[in-house]
Amino acid sequence: MPLRQKIFAVMVALAILVAIVELVRRRKLKEEYSFLWLLVGALMLVLGVWYGLLQAITRFIGAGFTSSTLFFFGIIFLMLMNLHFSIKVSDLSEKVKNLTQEVALLRAEREESLPSSD
């Protein structure tokens, strides 16, 4: 791996790590959701510094090129992230439904206890 490429990969990885940490610091991203992104940033950093590892993984999975390995794992990661968010959205939908019902029931209860208010 040429030095210039290595420097670029390391800088991108560092930028991602810094961006994630900054988002958590500003409370724009919860720690819970930052974990996987930090893991990816760290992995990019490791692979940027240690190209031999990427080559070993490429040989291990039988891929022809190191770039194929990166794309393959990148796509797998994005799919898993989407699945993770779909699970979260399902959970949140259930909670929104329960909250909505609770609001409606409490409002009805309150109206019942104040019969002459309207």
Partner: peptide
């Protein structure tokens, strides 16, 4: 008649 109003369409 008693009515329970959901805050929005669910």
């Amino acid at each position: 008649v008693k009515v329970i109003c959901l805050p929005f369409h669910m």
